[in-house]
Design a protein around this nucleic acid. Structure first.
Lengths: 141, 141
DNA sequence: TGAATGTACACCAAGTTAGTATAATATTGC
DNA sequence: GCAATATTATACTAACTTGGTGTACATTCA
């Protein structure tokens, strides 16, 4: 019942980009150092964030990465699902064929888990990076 | 972000025991057949449920397993944590020493995740097996 | 005693996770 | 054009987790 370390890194990479001026770029090297993320691992996960449309990348000298949306329009759910894939809290909800009980439709347990899952996704989608910026800004030491 | 298959089996084992008369026993063999769970795997997870105080076991002929509480007093969270261990949705929340950011206390991302985690646990603890019985009873075909 | 049951411990194959290695490609500035 | 700075692409790997099996033993009841 965990998000992967990779998704945790991704949240922090997006957070770091959120702290920059709108449209500003940061190289993977800088993000890696600032957020203490292994560089090569970061490079790989940034591809996923790009494929998901959350960041844009720029090659060459002065290249790097920038958010492709405003911080307020990027949720935790967006980032986590970009990295880990869609959230399914159990196997049956992911692939009903694998349900070795009666099937999701007829199984009260799986129905109940489904409701929990949807609440979880709603909670994660209600947090965006503007919230995080605001919280940090007001508590700056 | 999933519960294990083992936890899913455990929910169904507890559910099956809930359908019996209060205090009634069922052998692992019967539970395995009724719920389509591999027997040896079931035996192992029943130990965890016993260690967690959710079921009682009885050895010998006419032995088996019985709930040690009423269905209404066993929540999904109880069962899932008995099998998978405490729920922590990311590594930092499990072991703050492993947080390679500033630490949970000073990291807004991890604080936000913590809140999501607590909501998730609350949701899971709000579902008990009497609910599931009631739902199934009213929809019996 | 013997059949039916649970207990304990060890083992294992497959998949996932977190990370590394290497080589290639694109952009900029001189 | 060339060097330097970046990203991209592909492949590899060690460690861990998951889902499951095997074997031997202990307990209870008839």
């Amino acid at each position: 019942m965990r998000i992967t370390q990779e998704a945790d890194y991704a949240l922090r990479a997006i957070y770091y980009l959120s702290t920059l001026d709108a449209g500003a770029r940061a190289s993977a090297n800088v993000i890696a150092k600032e957020q203490n993320i292994p560089l090569r691992f970061l490079l790989k996960l940034l591809q996923k964030l790009r494929d998901a449309g959350l960041v844009e990348s720029f090659m060459g000298v002065n290249g790097g990465y920038a958010l492709s949306k405003q911080p307020k329009d990027i949720s935790f759910l967006d980032v986590i699902e970009a990295i880990d894939g869609p959230i399914y809290i159990n196997r049956c909800l992911y692939d009903p064929e694998e349900c070795n009980n009666l099937g999701v439709e007829y199984c009260s347990i799986h129905k109940a888990l489904h409701q929990v899952q949807e609440k979880l996704k709603k909670d994660l989608s209600s947090i965006n990076f503007q919230h995080i910026l605001d919280e940090n800004g007001s508590k700056e030491v």
